[in-house]
């Protein structure tokens, strides 16, 4: 008797559960609009002449420039109208001095990945993106005359390096 009753109850229960649980309203998840910016987009403030020189010197020599030298060097930058040009002259002046801390060409070529990570960290305070890493690896590997000094020079001249 009980078995014959269960015979109808269980399928009915299953059907009931199926019908009413299936009617539960679906949750909708929206996605907020986000502007996707590259890793370097948080740099919005232009360095002053003194900031640029102080950071450049520290990046190249791994030591601080004296305040007298910093003042004089910033006057030099102000004394020439083309900022790109005076930065070039300043960097090449530093590159001609003793004490610039640079890896050798052999060290760079033995570990290009490591060199790139170190260079990005040193100058741009971030890691390279995959695209950047790929470009520079390719560029260094296909240009045997490119040495660490030239890579450092290009980073110090870049627009991103003017900002923090």
């Amino acid at each position: 008797m009980l078995i014959s009753k269960l015979k109808y109850f269980i399928p009915a229960l299953f059907a009931f559960t199926l019908v009413f649980s299936g009617c539960e309203k679906d949750k909708l998840y929206d996605v907020n609009e986000e502007t996707i910016l590259p890793a370097n987009a948080n740099k919005t403030k232009l360095k002053s002449d003194q900031q640029y020189i102080a950071i450049l010197y520290a990046n190249l020599f791994q030591t601080a420039l004296s305040s007298d030298d910093l003042f004089e060097a910033s006057e030099c930058v102000q004394s020439i109208g083309d900022k790109d040009l005076v930065h070039e002259v300043l960097i090449s002046n530093y590159m001609n001095q003793q004490g610039v801390i640079l890896p050798t060409n052999e060290e760079m070529r033995a570990d290009v990945d490591g060199f790139l990570t170190e260079t990005y960290n040193r100058f741009l305070v971030r890691n390279p993106t995959e695209a950047e890493r790929q470009y520079f690896k390719n560029y260094i590997n296909t240009h045997p005359n490119v040495r660490p000094e030239l890579v450092y020079f290009s980073f110090a001249l870049s627009n991103e390096y003017q900002y923090y």
């Binding site: 910016l37 560029y139 030239l150 290009s154 870049s158 991103e160």
Partner: peptide
């Protein structure tokens, strides 16, 4: 030497999303 420097600089510049305004200087 200068050509590679400029080529690498221009690559970096193209990858820089400059949202902080422009660098004002005359251009030679």
């Amino acid at each position: 030497e200068l050509n590679p420097i400029y080529q690498m600089k221009y690559f970096l510049d193209n990858n820089f999303e400059n949202v902080g305004g422009t660098i004002e200087s005359i251009y030679n």
